[in-house]
């Protein structure tokens, strides 16, 4: 690691709110040379050889965790993953003790997923290792935001001036917050749409337009990022029923057919088919949902590489080097 220089992203990646436009573009640009690694027969380069990374998942996750693990392994890092259920956390160990124990094993990076907003900050303040936020409560999920940006950029060639509407449960969504900050910083226009019961208070002060009706949002947008409607939101009384939600806010072919633009459909997964999005849309020509997943690995490689001390300019060369 280039200890004498400030690392490109600083010590940690906790959210997109605190990144600059240049840093975000830098991560997206760095992702490009890493995309190709996953297309090879032998999917491995020595970029992170000798680095130890712990994936600490205090909340269940399939997609994000596997995506991080592939990114790490394809860069030759040594990795360990744990989920809260199978660790000392379930025996009542505090987050701070878990952090200190990980630190004592001289690891280089921690990827943390936690149900409480601010948990990644909490960890980052207490350990010297790099911390990557893989989703903290309702706060941020920066690598998801970045892979959404990359996917939109891949399609349109630019993010500047593109109109992106985030649809659904913005209130409880860390994906929504990372999208809002990331998209706004790179010059996209951002809107949100959903029932007001699922909108964060004073969300417009985050620099977004609020659409009350999905038809208006579809008319306006170049891309829709459709959020998962968690089933417990219905039990919490935020929406009367899943059926009604689909009728009022669901992304259906009918609604898209009336769209003036060639609209792009993103979804961070896992999807509730027939609730927030109809299957024909998810599997249809507008959908880039699987491209998001592919891009997720490349974006995470880029983040790992930059936090380990790499620079965007040298990413291509790093792939054939012997590690950082």
């Amino acid at each position: 690691m280039n200890a004498q220089y400030a690392p490109y992203l600083g010590k940690d990646l906790l959210g997109l709110e605190e990144l600059t436009r240049e840093q975000i573009i830098g991560i997206l640009d760095t992702s490009e040379p890493f995309k190709e690694i996953s297309e090879r027969a032998i999917k491995k380069v020595p970029v992170l050889r000798g680095k130890t990374i712990v994936n600490a998942f205090f909340e269940s996750s399939t997609r994000t965790r596997i995506s991080f693990e592939f990114a790490e392994k394809r860069l030759s890092a040594d990795t360990v993953s744990f989920a809260a259920g199978g660790s000392s956390v379930s025996k009542g160990e505090t987050l701070v003790d878990t952090a200190r124990n990980l630190e004592a094993m001289r690891i280089d990076m921690v990827v943390i997923r936690h149900g409480s907003s601010g948990a990644a900050h909490f960890l980052a303040d207490r350990i010297a290792s790099n911390v990557i936020n893989a989703g903290d409560g309702k706060h941020e999920h920066p690598t998801q935001g970045l892979l959404d940006l990359l996917t939109i950029r891949d399609h349109f060639g630019t993010l500047e001036g593109k109109k992106v509407c985030i649809v659904g449960d913005v209130l409880h969504s860390r994906v929504a917050r990372s999208n809002i900050w990331g998209l706004r910083k790179v010059g996209a226009e951002v809107a949100v749409c959903g029932p007001l019961t699922l909108m964060p208070p004073r969300v417009e002060e985050m620099g977004v337009t609020v659409f009350r009706r999905i038809e208006e949002a579809i008319e306006w947008a170049d891309a829709l990022n459709v959020l998962r409607l968690q089933l417990e939101r219905m039990e919490g009384g935020f929406v009367p029923s899943l059926r009604e939600y689909n009728r009022v806010f669901g992304i259906t072919n009918d609604r898209l057919d009336r769209a003036p633009n060639d609209i792009l459909i993103l979804h961070p997964g896992p999807m509730n088919r027939g609730v927030e999005i109809d299957s024909v849309v998810a599997d249809g020509p507008h959908s880039v949902i699987l491209k998001q997943v592919t891009n997720g690995v490349a974006v995470r490689m880029a983040v790992l590489y930059l936090l380990a001390g790499g620079e965007p300019d040298t990413a291509e060369a790093a792939k054939i080097g012997t590690g950082l």
């Binding site: 709110e17 907003s117 601010g118 903290d136 309702k138 706060h139 964060p200 208070p201 004073r202 985050m206």
Partner: peptide, 8 residues
């Protein structure tokens, strides 16, 4: 707005 930003 601060609670909304912090996700609390």
């Amino acid at each position: 707005i601060i609670s909304s930003r912090l996700g609390l």
